[in-house]
Design a protein around this nucleic acid. Structure first.
Length: 271
DNA sequence: AGATGTCCCTGGAAGC
DNA sequence: TGCTTCCAGGGACATC
């Protein structure tokens, strides 16, 4: 589920509804990626003030302290009144006066971490090294080029690292590079200003389009192929190894970069 | 500092 | 059918 658009859609789905809610109790299931970092009962009685987002982290702010929530690979967050009893994969549950916030995460790569404030050690450790928000005002072509010009790793891996720009996961990295017509394996520092400007625009377009369509991932759409009118969000390259490029019909190629799969069109995407 | 490999965990799909 | 192997959208951490 979760790259930046999915996390942002999740945030919007409950931010207004949970604001002002008082915590009634907190229940933990199996351990997530990191311990909560606070006795769950200490959250009882606090009030949720708002829900923010930084990269793929949700920031649930309380009148004192905040919870950093990450969905990992398989996490789903729900907030509602009449939820079923917790299942075996529901590992965090916070009952409030306005509904129950529940994290279901079968793979348990996700996390819920307590921080006393915005400059807490946990916040600095998890959020301190993050790059700029791709949909925010600080993401601009010139600064992007400046940040890339000293990086010798492949552009795909630099995008995934998240220390230049956040929120671009494995699927959207392949898709954005296709839109920008850039070979994923090219070294980041070899990209010209003009090509970086194209990539900048492509990242925004890809993420904004996904956000506009409700944050459903390209993979979800691909598996739902034929069902709805959402085919404009079909992956152009992701998971399409061997299938014809939608632009030039050349078979899409798959390679591995840093233990992750990358897909590209060898004709449309140049070095 | 930056690049690279490893690991956390479960479930579904593919291969034999 | 049943077993094994591989793969999955993330990212912190150790190591070089």
């Amino acid at each position: 589920m979760p790259e930046l658009p999915e996390v942002e859609v999740t945030r919007r789905s409950f931010a207004a509804r949970i604001a002002g809610a008082r915590v009634l109790d907190v229940r933990m299931g199996k351990p997530l990626r990191w311990p909560l970092g606070v006795e769950p009962t200490r959250l009882v009685g606090r009030t949720v003030t708002d829900v923010g987002r930084r990269g793929k982290y949700l920031l649930l702010r309380l009148d004192a302290g905040l919870l950093l929530i990450h969905l990992g690979m398989s996490g789903r967050l729900t907030f509602g009144q009449n939820l079923l009893p917790p299942g075996e994969h529901d590992h965090f549950e916070m009952r409030t006066t306005q509904g129950v916030l529940r994290l279901r995460d079968p793979r348990r790569f996700g996390a819920v971490v307590w921080a006393e404030g915005e400059d807490d050690g946990a916040v600095r450790k998890l959020l301190g090294g993050l790059g700029v928000e791709p949909l925010g005002p600080d993401f601009d072509p010139e600064a992007f080029w400046q940040a890339l010009r000293h990086r010798r790793a492949s552009i795909k891996q630099v995008l995934l690292a998240g220390d230049v720009v956040v929120g671009v996961g494995n699927i959207y990295a392949s898709e954005a590079l296709f839109v920008a017509r850039i070979r994923p394996t090219v070294s980041a520092c070899r990209l010209s200003r003009a090509r970086v400007a194209r990539l900048h625009a492509a990242i925004r377009t890809v993420l904004e389009t996904a956000l506009h369509w409700g944050g459903s991932t390209l993979r979800d759409f691909a598996s739902a192929e034929g069902h709805s009118g959402y085919f404009q969000l079909e992956a152009k390259v992701y998971d399409r190894a061997g299938q014809p490029c939608r632009v030039c019909a050349t078979p899409i190629r798959a390679v591995r970069q840093g233990q992750r799969s990358t897909f590209y069109c060898p004709v449309c995407q140049r070095y």
